[in-house]
Design a protein around this nucleic acid. Structure first.
Length: 271
DNA sequence: AAACCTCCCTGGGGGC
DNA sequence: TGCCCCCAGGGAGGTT
């Protein structure tokens, strides 16, 4: 389940293999992922990727013609492989390069997306508008978070998962960050002290940086671009551990639902 | 306006 | 063993 670290690791993994090489073919095998794949992406044929950026969990493959926007959804994977590698189930899309390499997108659950932003369109793509700051930017700091949370009655966990507040904090890292900050995920966002906003910002940055350095969290299906698994899962304190013992105080971890998603926390360590 | 709900999709796991 | 049902997840879009 790719979250921001996994997307960043994918970006770093594919980047050196796909920039500044003529694209010889654009192959769409499955016309619809989360949304229909726009026909305009075929304008990449003959073009070259000049850079690969990341905004939130979106990968942006820039070219002169426009930008291919890729979202990995929850089961999407990008591999850079030789074009002779046989197709496997759910290989939905290929970007073929002149040197025989292929950027291949595989996504069993099809929650992923391929979108197109033409160079001629000055408006930002709808999925990229209304996004909050990047969590690893300096603009995401205690003052900003406190400001964003004032008057917010909804739970702090749901607030840090809100892309309008800060992008890229999905369920795994929201759970982990709140545990590390010692904050009860059910508390109203506006109820935190300045010290708690500060701690929360710090641990979010820390946990994301650590996950990137470890190559992302491997649960069921995340792999790096070269196929190696990430190594972060063994560092998880609470995610997926409801009913197990807290790694800090050994009290039983509680599991509840917030916004239809699992929240796991320690009633003793998180107040 | 903020808060909440629904839907998209498939593979894997548990229960029977 | 096989079948069914439920769950996981992000985020747009709809409803209250």
């Amino acid at each position: 389940m790719p979250e921001l670290p996994e997307v960043e690791v994918s970006r770093q993994g594919i980047l050196p293999h796909i920039v500044n090489k003529p694209i010889t073919d654009v192959v769409v095998r499955c016309p619809k992922l989360r949304w229909p794949i726009p026909a305009e992406i075929s304008s990449l044929k003959g073009a070259q990727i000049s850079s690969v950026e990341r905004r939130a969990k979106y990968l942006l493959l820039n070219s002169q013609e426009g930008t291919l926007i890729i979202h990995l959804g929850m089961s999407g994977k990008l591999r850079v492989i030789d074009s002779s590698v046989p197709l496997i189930k759910h290989d939905h899309f290929d970007l073929c390069f002149e040197d025989g390499l292929v950027l291949r997108f595989n996504d069993p659950r099809r929650f992923g997306a391929l979108l197109w932003q033409s160079s001629s369109n000055q408006e930002p793509h709808p999925v990229l508008s209304n996004l909050g700051p990047e969590p690893l930017d300096e603009s995401f700091n205690a003052e900003y978070l406190a400001q964003s949370c004032c008057n917010k009655s909804k739970a702090v966990k749901l607030t840090i998962m809100d892309n309008a507040v800060v992008v890229g904090v999905g369920n795994i890292y929201a759970n982990e960050s709140l545990f590390l900050a010692g904050i009860d995920p059910r508390r109203p966002a506006s109820s935190l002290t300045h010290d708690e906003y500060s701690r929360l910002v710090d641990v979010i940055k820390e946990v994301l940086n650590k996950a990137i350095a470890q190559g992302g969290t491997t649960l069921k299906d995340f792999q790096q671009a070269d196929g190696k698994p990430g190594y972060f899962a063994q560092y998880l304190y609470v995610y997926g551990r409801g009913g197990d013992d807290c790694r800090k105080c050994e009290e039983e971890l509680q599991e509840i639902k917030q916004g239809q998603r699992a929240t796991v926390f320690c009633g003793n360590c998180q107040t």
